[in-house]
Design a protein around this nucleic acid. Structure first.
Lengths: 266, 266
DNA sequence: CGTCAAAAG
DNA sequence: CTTTAGACG
């Protein structure tokens, strides 16, 4: 029985809904949708966006209004859900929510974006450090429960040179720093997770999932692959297809990110 | 030789230009256009809006970015122009500019909007007090120079019951306070100016020139007549037509105010 | 370049 | 309800 999972950074769910997210959701075949950068308290979302007909939704807004915010939309009712991972600093930041479905834990992650030389980069580093420890715990817990896990979201790090158009120009920019790339490698090599999309598409460049709104980044396909489905190995082995739903034209976009959709044969 | 003068509060010239002001300006027969609430420094306006082909423009932005701002667009080059009237408090507030054309001084005025019980109402009162003294001076100067004068703009006061849809509900609201109405009467009765549009349309209600964006004010024609052409008597006597260019539908509006256009046979 | 909150109207 | 500046990304 196939299960399809989509992750997408909506860059403001209210704006995205006006521009096409609602139509996209109505048309999608996904069973699970992971959202990042909702940027609204649930009360401030139209009801048909907050809890659309046919979906169960879990919202984890940030304490700061208009910032971050993640959500999970599932066709099946979750057995359990958890906001954050027990972090004093990050649990109220609207950056992590997970839900248990039969045999599967699915998470929506919005890893902080950084800026070299600023406090935002330090925050990103602190987040990564804490979150790595949690990823190890998550794997152990899922193994003990006979569950698979997939952590979907905007990780704000391109892993390898094939994961962004202009890697040379970005070796000193947040999102492609050597230490960030090494951290992401440790998620795969030490914590034992798998980059599902790269597994199905071993050849780069791309597929990119984010194009800056600045300049002509979208038209030039000057993108980054920073949205991942990071899963337990057994689940990754059951992935049968992966696509990035890049909009046909600039004007048809409803976010600066595109949905990343994977079908798992589980 | 007829001269047509339009005054309109554009509620943000950048937004208005996107929504239809540019097309309106290209189609207008006016010789002189007085703008209020430009809400942009000239540098931040597209060149074709800041100084359109065929027009001479005078911009008087507010010191505070994004606030107030008046301008005059004339097909003929002005002989002189003056920003403010020599007021310590108001000259840099982007609320008054005047220009001399042959035989005529034309001004664009954006009188402060108030709110009862707040500092904004006190500011409006101070403005009115100072500006009345200037209006008297202006008349004397124009008389001495053999010039007519017309002060066009958003006066933010409805003069009489016929000048707003729901006058009873507004007797305690800024814009229709007894003292504001009395002040405007003094502009006519003591300073000796004439309300040109009311002269040509003695019967109310209306014509209204502003409808709040809130609620269904436009659809219900729940408007106010707060945009005036206030002229010297001899000029008013030469006015041959006056129209408020109310948009046909809500969606065709490019401001919450409508252009008020008068043709003078001078 | 685009989203959002807040202040202003 | 709409515009704008400013913060953030």
């Amino acid at each position: 029985m196939p299960t399809t999972v989509t992750t997408v950074n909506v860059n403001g769910l209210r704006a995205a809904a006006r521009k096409g997210f609602t139509a996209w959701l109505e048309g999608t075949a996904a069973d699970i949708v992971c959202l990042q950068e909702v940027r609204a308290e649930p009360d401030r979302l139209p009801a048909e966006v907050r809890e659309p007909e046919g979906w169960h939704t879990v919202h984890a807004p940030a304490a700061a209004k208009g910032r971050a915010g993640v959500a999970l939309y599932t066709r099946q009712a979750p057995e359990a859900m958890r906001v954050g991972w027990g972090s004093d600093e990050f649990d109220a930041s609207g950056r992590y929510v997970e839900a248990d479905l039969p045999g599967l834990t699915v998470a929506s992650l919005y890893l902080p974006s950084g800026e070299v030389g600023t406090e935002r980069q330090s925050e990103k580093e602190r987040f990564c450090k804490e979150f790595f420890l949690y990823l190890v715990q998550l794997r152990q817990r899922c193994a003990a429960q006979g569950r698979e896990a997939v952590v979907c979201g905007d990780w704000n790090i391109a892993h390898r040179e094939a994961d962004l158009k202009n890697w040379r120009a970005n070796t000193r920019n947040s999102g492609f720093l050597p230490e960030e790339r090494a951290w992401l490698s440790s998620v795969f090599d030490e914590a034992g997770y798998v980059d599902v999309v790269r597994g199905l598409h071993p050849e780069g460049p791309g597929p990119y999932s984010w194009w800056s709104y600045r300049g002509k980044a979208f038209d030039n396909d000057s993108g980054w692959r920073i949205d991942y489905q990071v899963s337990t190995p057994a689940l990754a082995a059951r992935a049968t297809s992966a696509v990035v739903e890049r909009a046909a034209t600039y004007d048809l976009r409803w976010s600066d990110h595109a949905p990343v959709t994977v079908t798992y044969d589980v």
